[in-house]
Design a protein around this nucleic acid. Structure first.
Length: 123
RNA sequence: AGAGUAGACAAGGUGGUCGCCGGCUCUUUCCCUUCUUCGCGAAAGAGCGGGAGGAAAGUCCGAGCUCCACAGGACACAGUGCUCCGUAACGCGGAGUCCCGGAGACGGGAAGGAAAGUGCAACAGAAAAUAUACCGUCCCAUCUUUUCAUGGGAUAAGGGUGAAAUGGCGGGGUCAUUAUUGACUUAAUGCAAGAGCCCACCGCUCUGGUGGUGACAUCGGAGGCAUGGCAAACCCCACUGGGAGAAAGGUUAAAUAGGGAGGGAUGAAGUGGUCCGCUUCAGUAAUACCUCCGGGUGAACCGUUUGAUCUCGUUGGCAACAACGAGACUAGAUAAAUGACCAUCCACGACAGGACUCGGCUUAUUGUCUACUCAAAAU
RNA sequence: GCCCCCAUCGUCUAGCGGCCCAGGAUGCCAGGUUCUCAGCCUGGAGACAGGGGUUCAAAUCCCCUUGGGGGUA
Protein backbone atom coordinates (compact mmCIF):
# COMPACT_ATOMS: atom_id res chain seq x y z
CA UNK A 1 0.00 0.00 0.00
CA UNK A 2 1.78 3.06 -1.20
CA UNK A 3 -0.26 5.55 0.88
CA UNK A 4 0.94 4.23 4.27
CA UNK A 5 3.17 6.16 6.62
CA UNK A 6 4.96 3.98 9.15
CA UNK A 7 7.50 4.65 11.88
CA UNK A 8 10.39 3.68 9.66
CA UNK A 9 9.51 6.57 7.37
CA UNK A 10 10.09 9.17 10.09
CA UNK A 11 13.16 10.97 11.30
CA UNK A 12 13.49 10.48 15.06
CA UNK A 13 17.07 10.80 16.29
CA UNK A 14 18.78 14.05 17.08
CA UNK A 15 21.82 13.22 14.96
CA UNK A 16 19.64 12.53 11.91
CA UNK A 17 18.07 15.96 12.23
CA UNK A 18 21.49 17.56 12.56
CA UNK A 19 22.74 15.78 9.44
CA UNK A 20 19.85 17.08 7.34
CA UNK A 21 20.26 20.64 8.60
CA UNK A 22 24.01 20.65 7.94
CA UNK A 23 24.16 18.87 4.60
CA UNK A 24 20.70 19.50 3.16
CA UNK A 25 19.52 21.73 0.40
CA UNK A 26 16.73 24.25 1.01
CA UNK A 27 13.48 24.38 -0.95
CA UNK A 28 10.79 26.85 0.03
CA UNK A 29 7.56 28.49 -0.96
CA UNK A 30 5.14 30.81 0.87
CA UNK A 31 3.81 28.16 3.23
CA UNK A 32 6.63 25.74 4.04
CA UNK A 33 10.43 25.29 4.08
CA UNK A 34 12.02 21.93 3.21
CA UNK A 35 15.54 20.75 4.06
CA UNK A 36 16.42 17.79 1.82
CA UNK A 37 19.35 15.38 1.66
CA UNK A 38 19.76 12.10 -0.23
CA UNK A 39 19.81 8.98 1.95
CA UNK A 40 20.89 5.37 1.32
CA UNK A 41 17.68 3.68 2.48
CA UNK A 42 15.12 1.92 0.28
CA UNK A 43 12.55 4.67 1.10
CA UNK A 44 12.30 8.34 1.96
CA UNK A 45 11.86 9.79 5.44
CA UNK A 46 10.09 12.86 6.85
CA UNK A 47 10.80 14.92 9.95
CA UNK A 48 8.79 17.85 11.25
CA UNK A 49 9.93 20.93 13.16
CA UNK A 50 7.26 23.34 14.36
CA UNK A 51 8.24 26.49 16.21
CA UNK A 52 6.31 27.71 19.22
CA UNK A 53 5.78 30.92 17.27
CA UNK A 54 3.29 29.09 15.04
CA UNK A 55 0.79 29.15 17.90
CA UNK A 56 -0.52 27.13 20.80
CA UNK A 57 -0.45 23.35 21.02
CA UNK A 58 -3.63 22.92 18.99
CA UNK A 59 -2.31 25.04 16.10
CA UNK A 60 1.04 23.26 16.14
CA UNK A 61 -0.62 19.84 16.05
CA UNK A 62 -2.80 21.03 13.20
CA UNK A 63 0.25 22.14 11.19
CA UNK A 64 2.02 18.82 11.74
CA UNK A 65 -1.02 16.79 10.77
CA UNK A 66 -1.57 18.71 7.56
CA UNK A 67 2.07 18.40 6.49
CA UNK A 68 2.14 14.71 7.35
CA UNK A 69 -1.03 14.13 5.33
CA UNK A 70 0.25 16.04 2.33
CA UNK A 71 3.49 14.06 2.39
CA UNK A 72 1.65 10.73 2.76
CA UNK A 73 -0.59 11.34 -0.26
CA UNK A 74 2.14 12.72 -2.55
CA UNK A 75 5.34 10.89 -1.65
CA UNK A 76 4.94 8.58 -4.67
CA UNK A 77 5.97 11.56 -6.81
CA UNK A 78 9.51 11.30 -5.45
CA UNK A 79 11.83 9.46 -7.82
CA UNK A 80 14.80 9.37 -5.36
CA UNK A 81 15.08 8.38 -1.70
CA UNK A 82 15.68 11.45 0.50
CA UNK A 83 15.40 12.67 4.07
CA UNK A 84 13.13 15.73 4.35
CA UNK A 85 12.59 18.11 7.24
CA UNK A 86 9.49 20.25 6.82
CA UNK A 87 9.09 23.52 8.71
CA UNK A 88 5.88 25.51 8.42
CA UNK A 89 6.46 29.22 7.99
CA UNK A 90 5.09 31.54 10.60
CA UNK A 91 1.84 32.88 9.15
CA UNK A 92 0.27 29.42 9.32
CA UNK A 93 -3.40 29.98 10.00
CA UNK A 94 -5.45 27.24 11.61
CA UNK A 95 -8.12 27.89 8.96
CA UNK A 96 -5.89 26.46 6.22
CA UNK A 97 -7.18 23.42 4.40
CA UNK A 98 -5.16 20.66 2.76
CA UNK A 99 -5.74 21.98 -0.74
CA UNK A 100 -4.15 25.32 0.23
CA UNK A 101 -0.70 23.77 0.67
CA UNK A 102 -0.90 20.67 -1.52
CA UNK A 103 -0.20 22.31 -4.90
CA UNK A 104 2.88 24.11 -3.68
CA UNK A 105 4.13 20.96 -1.99
CA UNK A 106 3.81 18.97 -5.21
CA UNK A 107 5.83 21.55 -7.13
CA UNK A 108 8.56 21.40 -4.49
CA UNK A 109 8.72 17.59 -4.75
CA UNK A 110 9.13 17.78 -8.52
CA UNK A 111 11.93 20.31 -8.08
CA UNK A 112 13.61 17.94 -5.61
CA UNK A 113 13.47 15.22 -8.26
CA UNK A 114 15.31 17.38 -10.77
CA UNK A 115 18.05 18.55 -8.39
CA UNK A 116 18.67 15.27 -6.59
CA UNK A 117 18.57 13.05 -9.63
CA UNK A 118 21.38 15.20 -10.99
CA UNK A 119 23.29 14.71 -7.76
CA UNK A 120 22.86 10.93 -7.78
CA UNK A 121 24.05 10.79 -11.38
CA UNK A 122 27.25 12.65 -10.47
CA UNK A 123 27.99 10.29 -7.60
C1' A B 1 -40.89 40.48 27.87
C1' G B 2 -36.55 43.05 30.06
C1' A B 3 -32.57 43.44 33.79
C1' G B 4 -30.11 40.45 37.26
C1' U B 5 -28.50 36.37 40.96
C1' A B 6 -27.33 31.26 41.98
C1' G B 7 -26.81 26.30 40.25
C1' A B 8 -26.84 21.95 36.92
C1' C B 9 -25.84 19.73 32.20
C1' A B 10 -23.63 19.24 27.16
C1' A B 11 -19.08 20.06 24.42
C1' G B 12 -21.56 18.57 16.98
C1' G B 13 -24.24 13.92 15.01
C1' U B 14 -24.64 10.06 10.95
C1' G B 15 -22.58 7.43 6.57
C1' G B 16 -18.39 6.43 3.13
C1' U B 17 -12.89 6.29 1.29
C1' C B 18 -7.61 6.77 2.73
C1' G B 19 -4.44 6.91 7.11
C1' C B 20 -2.15 7.16 12.77
C1' C B 21 -1.24 4.93 18.21
C1' G B 22 -1.26 1.07 21.48
C1' G B 23 -4.13 -3.90 23.40
C1' C B 24 -5.88 -9.11 22.47
C1' U B 25 -6.29 -13.37 18.97
C1' C B 26 -4.63 -15.76 14.50
C1' U B 27 -1.26 -16.44 10.10
C1' U B 28 3.58 -15.91 7.56
C1' U B 29 8.90 -14.83 7.70
C1' C B 30 13.36 -14.14 10.58
C1' C B 31 16.18 -14.97 15.21
C1' C B 32 17.12 -18.56 19.26
C1' U B 33 17.67 -24.21 19.55
C1' U B 34 21.58 -30.25 17.20
C1' C B 35 16.29 -30.78 15.09
C1' U B 36 10.69 -30.43 16.02
C1' U B 37 7.43 -28.48 19.72
C1' C B 38 7.20 -25.02 23.84
C1' G B 39 9.09 -20.27 25.56
C1' C B 40 11.57 -15.26 24.56
C1' G B 41 12.20 -11.40 20.80
C1' A B 42 11.63 -8.68 15.87
C1' A B 43 8.98 -7.49 11.22
C1' A B 44 4.64 -7.80 8.02
C1' G B 45 -0.61 -8.93 7.26
C1' A B 46 -5.85 -10.00 8.83
C1' G B 47 -9.87 -9.76 12.52
C1' C B 48 -12.08 -7.76 17.16
C1' G B 49 -12.86 -3.96 20.39
C1' G B 50 -10.33 1.07 22.52
C1' G B 51 -8.09 6.05 21.69
C1' A B 52 -7.63 13.82 24.93
C1' G B 53 -10.45 18.10 28.51
C1' G B 54 -13.95 20.81 31.42
C1' A B 55 -10.69 23.40 31.68
C1' A B 56 -5.90 18.57 29.47
C1' A B 57 -3.99 25.48 30.49
C1' G B 58 -1.54 28.81 34.41
C1' U B 59 1.98 26.03 37.73
C1' C B 60 -0.91 29.17 42.55
C1' C B 61 -1.57 25.49 46.83
C1' G B 62 -2.05 20.35 48.96
C1' A B 63 -0.72 15.12 48.73
C1' G B 64 0.79 10.20 46.80
C1' C B 65 5.34 8.06 44.62
C1' U B 66 11.07 7.90 44.21
C1' C B 67 16.14 9.04 46.25
C1' C B 68 18.77 11.19 50.27
C1' A B 69 18.08 8.68 58.02
C1' C B 70 11.31 5.12 58.33
C1' A B 71 13.22 12.76 58.37
C1' G B 72 15.83 13.53 64.29
C1' G B 73 17.16 18.32 67.53
C1' A B 74 18.22 23.81 67.84
C1' C B 75 18.33 28.49 65.47
C1' A B 76 17.01 30.92 61.06
C1' C B 77 13.47 31.31 57.02
C1' A B 78 8.66 30.78 54.77
C1' G B 79 3.42 30.16 54.98
C1' U B 80 -1.38 30.21 57.33
C1' G B 81 -4.71 33.14 60.91
C1' C B 82 -13.38 34.14 63.09
C1' U B 83 -15.89 29.13 64.75
C1' C B 84 -17.21 24.01 64.27
C1' C B 85 -17.14 20.07 60.96
C1' G B 86 -15.29 17.30 56.31
C1' U B 87 -10.84 15.33 54.11
C1' A B 88 -5.00 11.37 52.91
C1' A B 89 -3.90 16.62 53.12
C1' C B 90 -4.54 21.79 52.05
C1' G B 91 -4.06 28.29 51.77
C1' C B 92 -9.63 23.66 49.59
C1' G B 93 -14.93 22.40 50.63
C1' G B 94 -19.60 22.52 53.85
C1' A B 95 -22.56 24.72 57.69
C1' G B 96 -22.56 28.98 60.68
C1' U B 97 -20.79 33.94 63.41
C1' C B 98 -19.47 39.07 62.79
C1' C B 99 -18.43 43.24 59.45
C1' C B 100 -18.99 45.53 54.52
C1' G B 101 -21.72 46.14 49.65
C1' G B 102 -26.56 45.74 47.05
C1' A B 103 -33.50 47.75 46.18
C1' G B 104 -33.47 42.41 46.32
C1' A B 105 -32.21 37.33 44.97
C1' C B 106 -27.34 37.38 46.68
C1' G B 107 -22.09 38.67 46.79
C1' G B 108 -17.30 39.89 49.27
C1' G B 109 -13.84 39.69 53.62
C1' A B 110 -5.18 37.29 55.03
C1' A B 111 -11.69 38.56 60.19
C1' G B 112 -5.67 36.70 66.23
C1' G B 113 -2.77 40.64 69.17
C1' A B 114 -1.89 47.99 69.01
C1' A B 115 -3.19 48.21 77.97
C1' A B 116 5.55 43.26 75.23
C1' G B 117 8.38 46.55 72.50
C1' U B 118 10.16 49.44 68.02
C1' G B 119 8.57 52.32 63.92
C1' C B 120 5.33 55.42 60.51
C1' A B 121 1.57 59.48 59.51
C1' A B 122 3.34 63.80 53.32
C1' C B 123 0.44 68.54 52.87
C1' A B 124 -2.49 71.37 56.14
C1' G B 125 -2.83 72.43 61.30
C1' A B 126 -1.32 75.44 67.75
C1' A B 127 -0.86 70.31 68.36
C1' A B 128 -0.53 63.65 65.05
C1' A B 129 0.00 60.63 70.53
C1' U B 130 2.50 63.70 74.50
C1' A B 131 -0.77 66.20 76.94
C1' U B 132 0.20 70.35 77.50
C1' A B 133 3.20 74.06 75.49
C1' C B 134 1.95 77.94 71.37
C1' C B 135 -1.23 81.80 69.29
C1' G B 136 -5.46 84.57 70.91
C1' U B 137 -8.35 86.92 75.03
C1' C B 138 -8.48 89.09 80.10
C1' C B 139 -5.95 90.98 84.63
C1' C B 140 -1.55 92.87 87.17
C1' A B 141 3.48 94.92 87.25
C1' U B 142 7.58 97.80 84.73
C1' C B 143 7.73 102.45 81.40
C1' U B 144 4.90 109.72 82.83
C1' U B 145 -0.56 107.93 80.39
C1' U B 146 -2.26 105.07 75.99
C1' U B 147 -0.28 102.00 71.95
C1' C B 148 4.00 98.86 71.52
C1' A B 149 7.48 95.79 74.24
C1' U B 150 9.01 92.65 78.50
C1' G B 151 7.70 89.71 82.84
C1' G B 152 4.01 87.23 85.93
C1' G B 153 -0.89 85.23 86.50
C1' A B 154 -5.74 83.70 84.78
C1' U B 155 -8.54 81.31 80.75
C1' A B 156 -15.76 78.19 81.69
C1' A B 157 -18.04 79.11 76.50
C1' G B 158 -11.62 80.95 70.91
C1' G B 159 -7.87 78.58 67.32
C1' G B 160 -11.04 77.80 60.28
C1' U B 161 -6.96 72.29 59.26
C1' G B 162 -7.01 67.15 58.32
C1' A B 163 -8.15 60.51 56.45
C1' A B 164 -7.79 60.82 61.73
C1' A B 165 -8.01 65.88 67.18
C1' U B 166 -9.11 62.20 73.54
C1' G B 167 -16.06 57.98 71.90
C1' G B 168 -21.13 59.45 69.58
C1' C B 169 -25.84 61.90 69.92
C1' G B 170 -29.59 64.61 72.53
C1' G B 171 -31.16 67.52 76.68
C1' G B 172 -29.96 70.62 80.85
C1' G B 173 -27.07 74.55 81.81
C1' U B 174 -23.29 78.19 82.60
C1' C B 175 -21.40 83.27 80.22
C1' A B 176 -22.06 88.85 79.84
C1' U B 177 -25.00 93.11 81.18
C1' U B 178 -28.86 95.34 84.08
C1' A B 179 -32.27 95.25 88.02
C1' U B 180 -33.41 92.81 92.64
C1' U B 181 -32.29 90.09 97.38
C1' G B 182 -29.91 88.74 103.79
C1' A B 183 -27.71 85.56 100.05
C1' C B 184 -24.02 81.94 95.95
C1' U B 185 -31.57 84.33 95.30
C1' U B 186 -34.83 85.73 91.45
C1' A B 187 -36.02 88.03 86.82
C1' A B 188 -35.20 90.29 82.12
C1' U B 189 -32.18 91.14 77.99
C1' G B 190 -28.01 89.83 74.75
C1' C B 191 -25.00 86.49 71.37
C1' A B 192 -20.11 83.67 69.69
C1' A B 193 -25.88 79.95 71.33
C1' G B 194 -21.65 77.57 74.82
C1' A B 195 -17.45 73.19 77.45
C1' G B 196 -13.36 69.30 79.60
C1' C B 197 -19.76 70.20 84.16
C1' C B 198 -24.59 67.28 85.07
C1' C B 199 -28.31 63.76 83.15
C1' A B 200 -30.38 60.01 79.63
C1' C B 201 -29.46 56.62 75.58
C1' C B 202 -25.91 54.11 72.33
C1' G B 203 -20.78 52.59 72.22
C1' C B 204 -16.63 51.20 75.47
C1' U B 205 -14.30 48.75 80.01
C1' C B 206 -15.19 45.50 84.15
C1' U B 207 -18.70 41.96 85.74
C1' G B 208 -23.11 38.35 86.48
C1' G B 209 -27.10 35.25 84.28
C1' U B 210 -29.34 32.52 80.01
C1' G B 211 -28.83 29.94 75.06
C1' G B 212 -25.04 27.61 71.86
C1' U B 213 -19.73 22.22 71.06
C1' G B 214 -17.96 27.13 69.52
C1' A B 215 -17.28 31.96 66.93
C1' C B 216 -21.09 34.68 69.22
C1' A B 217 -26.04 36.23 70.57
C1' U B 218 -29.19 38.09 74.37
C1' C B 219 -30.82 40.06 79.29
C1' G B 220 -29.03 42.74 83.54
C1' G B 221 -25.40 45.37 87.14
C1' A B 222 -21.29 48.73 87.95
C1' G B 223 -17.76 52.32 86.11
C1' G B 224 -17.65 57.73 83.95
C1' C B 225 -14.13 57.13 79.30
C1' A B 226 -9.02 55.10 80.92
C1' U B 227 -7.36 51.69 75.97
C1' G B 228 -6.81 56.85 68.90
C1' G B 229 -5.03 54.59 63.69
C1' C B 230 -1.63 51.47 60.62
C1' A B 231 0.53 44.77 61.99
C1' A B 232 -0.93 42.75 53.09
C1' A B 233 5.44 48.05 58.61
C1' C B 234 9.04 45.28 61.87
C1' C B 235 7.10 42.30 65.45
C1' C B 236 4.34 39.06 69.39
C1' C B 237 1.12 34.68 69.89
C1' A B 238 -0.88 29.99 67.89
C1' C B 239 -0.45 26.26 64.14
C1' U B 240 2.12 24.07 59.84
C1' G B 241 6.47 23.13 56.83
C1' G B 242 13.46 18.54 56.03
C1' G B 243 15.42 18.83 50.73
C1' A B 244 15.04 17.54 45.67
C1' G B 245 11.83 16.35 41.74
C1' A B 246 9.76 11.42 36.68
C1' A B 247 15.24 15.02 32.86
C1' A B 248 12.97 11.65 40.36
C1' G B 249 14.85 6.79 40.50
C1' G B 250 16.18 1.63 38.82
C1' U B 251 18.07 -2.42 35.22
C1' U B 252 20.86 -3.60 30.86
C1' A B 253 24.01 -2.12 26.84
C1' A B 254 27.90 1.18 25.18
C1' A B 255 32.15 4.05 26.81
C1' U B 256 35.65 3.69 30.56
C1' A B 257 41.99 6.62 26.97
C1' G B 258 44.59 10.33 28.76
C1' G B 259 44.67 15.84 30.81
C1' G B 260 44.28 20.01 34.64
C1' A B 261 43.45 21.70 39.86
C1' G B 262 42.94 20.67 45.07
C1' G B 263 42.96 17.71 49.87
C1' G B 264 44.53 15.73 54.72
C1' A B 265 44.64 12.40 59.62
C1' U B 266 40.82 12.02 59.85
C1' G B 267 38.76 13.56 55.14
C1' A B 268 34.87 13.74 51.45
C1' A B 269 29.90 13.24 49.96
C1' G B 270 24.63 12.71 50.99
C1' U B 271 22.68 18.05 52.86
C1' G B 272 20.92 22.91 48.24
C1' G B 273 20.28 28.43 55.01
C1' U B 274 23.67 27.29 59.45
C1' C B 275 25.20 24.08 63.51
C1' C B 276 24.64 19.30 65.80
C1' G B 277 23.42 14.42 64.83
C1' C B 278 22.95 10.29 61.27
C1' U B 279 24.40 7.30 56.88
C1' U B 280 27.86 5.85 53.08
C1' C B 281 32.80 5.63 51.06
C1' A B 282 38.11 5.86 51.67
C1' G B 283 41.75 5.22 55.67
C1' U B 284 47.52 5.50 58.64
C1' A B 285 51.84 8.69 54.99
C1' A B 286 51.65 7.87 49.04
C1' U B 287 53.20 6.42 40.96
C1' A B 288 47.86 5.05 46.22
C1' C B 289 42.95 7.18 47.76
C1' C B 290 39.14 11.01 47.63
C1' U B 291 36.89 15.53 45.50
C1' C B 292 36.23 19.17 41.59
C1' C B 293 36.94 20.82 36.39
C1' G B 294 37.25 19.01 31.58
C1' G B 295 36.54 14.74 28.00
C1' G B 296 33.61 10.23 26.20
C1' U B 297 28.88 7.52 25.82
C1' G B 298 24.47 9.85 25.79
C1' A B 299 20.82 3.84 23.34
C1' A B 300 16.85 0.42 25.04
C1' C B 301 13.53 -1.19 28.86
C1' C B 302 11.12 -0.58 33.72
C1' G B 303 8.90 3.44 36.48
C1' U B 304 3.81 4.01 33.20
C1' U B 305 -1.14 3.28 34.22
C1' U B 306 -5.93 -0.59 39.15
C1' G B 307 -6.47 4.18 41.48
C1' A B 308 -7.51 8.44 48.41
C1' U B 309 -10.58 5.21 40.57
C1' C B 310 -15.52 5.33 38.26
C1' U B 311 -21.02 3.98 38.04
C1' C B 312 -25.49 2.50 40.57
C1' G B 313 -28.12 1.51 45.13
C1' U B 314 -29.01 1.60 50.61
C1' U B 315 -28.04 3.89 55.32
C1' G B 316 -26.24 8.17 58.41
C1' G B 317 -25.65 13.59 58.09
C1' C B 318 -28.82 20.43 57.05
C1' A B 319 -24.49 19.85 53.94
C1' A B 320 -19.37 18.96 52.51
C1' C B 321 -18.83 13.82 53.07
C1' A B 322 -18.62 8.85 55.19
C1' A B 323 -19.85 3.54 55.74
C1' C B 324 -21.72 -0.83 53.36
C1' G B 325 -23.23 -3.75 48.96
C1' A B 326 -23.14 -4.79 43.65
C1' G B 327 -20.83 -3.90 39.04
C1' A B 328 -16.99 -1.81 35.53
C1' C B 329 -11.59 -1.50 33.60
C1' U B 330 -12.14 3.73 30.94
C1' A B 331 -5.54 7.01 26.46
C1' G B 332 -0.68 5.42 27.53
C1' A B 333 2.39 8.30 23.24
C1' U B 334 8.29 9.29 23.40
C1' A B 335 9.86 14.42 17.82
C1' A B 336 5.29 12.41 20.49
C1' A B 337 -0.96 9.00 18.15
C1' U B 338 -7.71 11.45 17.18
C1' G B 339 -6.30 13.52 10.99
C1' A B 340 -7.62 14.42 5.59
C1' C B 341 -11.45 14.42 1.86
C1' C B 342 -16.69 13.79 0.36
C1' A B 343 -22.04 13.69 1.44
C1' U B 344 -25.89 15.10 4.77
C1' C B 345 -28.67 17.24 9.24
C1' C B 346 -28.86 21.07 12.81
C1' A B 347 -28.43 25.39 17.24
C1' C B 348 -23.46 26.31 11.75
C1' G B 349 -19.37 24.22 16.16
C1' A B 350 -16.16 28.83 21.36
C1' C B 351 -11.85 28.13 24.52
C1' A B 352 -8.59 24.71 23.48
C1' G B 353 -4.43 18.75 23.04
C1' G B 354 -2.65 14.08 27.88
C1' A B 355 3.30 13.48 29.00
C1' C B 356 4.06 9.93 36.63
C1' U B 357 -0.82 10.17 39.21
C1' C B 358 -4.63 12.36 42.20
C1' G B 359 -7.52 16.59 45.40
C1' G B 360 -8.43 21.81 44.86
C1' C B 361 -7.88 27.05 43.30
C1' U B 362 -7.45 30.52 39.31
C1' U B 363 -7.80 31.98 34.31
C1' A B 364 -9.93 31.33 28.85
C1' U B 365 -14.68 30.10 26.64
C1' U B 366 -19.86 28.34 23.48
C1' G B 367 -24.79 26.77 24.27
C1' U B 368 -29.12 24.82 26.89
C1' C B 369 -32.07 24.18 31.18
C1' U B 370 -33.81 24.94 36.30
C1' A B 371 -34.73 27.90 40.65
C1' C B 372 -35.00 32.73 42.64
C1' U B 373 -35.09 38.48 42.76
C1' C B 374 -36.85 43.11 40.78
C1' A B 375 -35.84 49.71 43.07
C1' A B 376 -35.96 53.17 39.01
C1' A B 377 -36.89 53.57 33.68
C1' A B 378 -39.41 51.54 29.22
C1' U B 379 -43.58 48.21 26.83
C1' G C 1 7.84 18.40 31.32
C1' C C 2 10.16 20.85 35.62
C1' C C 3 12.55 25.17 38.09
C1' C C 4 13.61 30.42 38.24
C1' C C 5 13.81 35.79 36.89
C1' C C 6 11.99 40.40 34.80
C1' A C 7 8.39 44.30 33.23
C1' U C 8 8.81 52.56 34.24
C1' C C 9 8.75 57.76 27.90
C1' G C 10 10.65 55.10 20.98
C1' U C 11 15.54 53.05 23.55
C1' C C 12 18.77 52.72 28.06
C1' U C 13 17.72 53.55 32.88
C1' A C 14 16.71 56.51 38.44
C1' G C 15 12.92 56.36 41.98
C1' C C 16 12.68 55.44 51.50
C1' G C 17 4.37 54.20 50.96
C1' G C 18 3.29 61.02 50.86
C1' C C 19 8.29 65.83 48.56
C1' C C 20 6.04 62.08 41.84
C1' C C 21 -0.28 64.34 36.99
C1' A C 22 7.33 60.22 38.04
C1' G C 23 13.78 62.39 37.43
C1' G C 24 18.09 61.75 33.90
C1' A C 25 20.56 60.37 29.22
C1' U C 26 19.72 59.46 24.15
C1' G C 27 16.34 59.78 20.16
C1' C C 28 11.81 63.00 18.20
C1' C C 29 9.48 68.05 17.29
C1' A C 30 9.87 73.55 17.25
C1' G C 31 12.83 77.99 17.64
C1' G C 32 17.79 80.36 17.78
C1' U C 33 23.07 80.36 16.13
C1' U C 34 25.39 79.26 10.62
C1' C C 35 25.54 81.00 3.59
C1' U C 36 23.91 75.47 4.44
C1' C C 37 24.66 70.88 7.26
C1' A C 38 26.78 68.92 11.66
C1' G C 39 27.66 70.65 16.51
C1' C C 40 25.96 74.02 20.41
C1' C C 41 21.88 76.87 23.18
C1' U C 42 16.52 77.32 24.58
C1' G C 43 11.71 75.23 24.86
C1' G C 44 8.08 71.18 24.09
C1' A C 45 5.64 66.32 23.54
C1' G C 46 6.32 61.45 25.30
C1' A C 47 5.99 56.00 30.29
C1' C C 48 4.68 53.10 35.89
C1' A C 49 2.11 45.79 31.47
C1' G C 50 -3.52 44.76 32.88
C1' G C 51 -7.23 43.85 36.84
C1' G C 52 -8.55 43.48 42.01
C1' G C 53 -7.31 44.29 47.33
C1' U C 54 -4.72 46.63 52.01
C1' U C 55 -3.98 51.86 53.44
C1' C C 56 -6.20 58.45 54.70
C1' A C 57 -2.65 57.80 50.55
C1' A C 58 0.30 52.55 45.98
C1' A C 59 5.16 53.01 40.46
C1' U C 60 6.36 51.12 45.54
C1' C C 61 2.91 46.32 49.89
C1' C C 62 -0.36 41.61 48.82
C1' C C 63 -3.17 38.42 45.21
C1' C C 64 -4.60 36.94 40.13
C1' U C 65 -3.70 37.37 34.94
C1' U C 66 -0.75 38.93 30.44
C1' G C 67 3.81 39.37 27.87
C1' G C 68 9.05 38.60 27.64
C1' G C 69 13.84 36.18 29.18
C1' G C 70 16.92 32.31 31.32
C1' G C 71 18.33 27.48 33.40
C1' U C 72 17.72 22.13 33.50
C1' A C 73 19.80 14.57 31.39
Amino acid sequence: MKYRFTKAERLTLKREFERVFQEGKVFKDAKVVLYVVVNSLPHSRLGLVVSKKVGNAVRRNRAKRLLREVYRLNKHLLAVHVDIIAIPRQPFSSDLKRSDIEDGFKKLLIKINEVCAHEVYHH
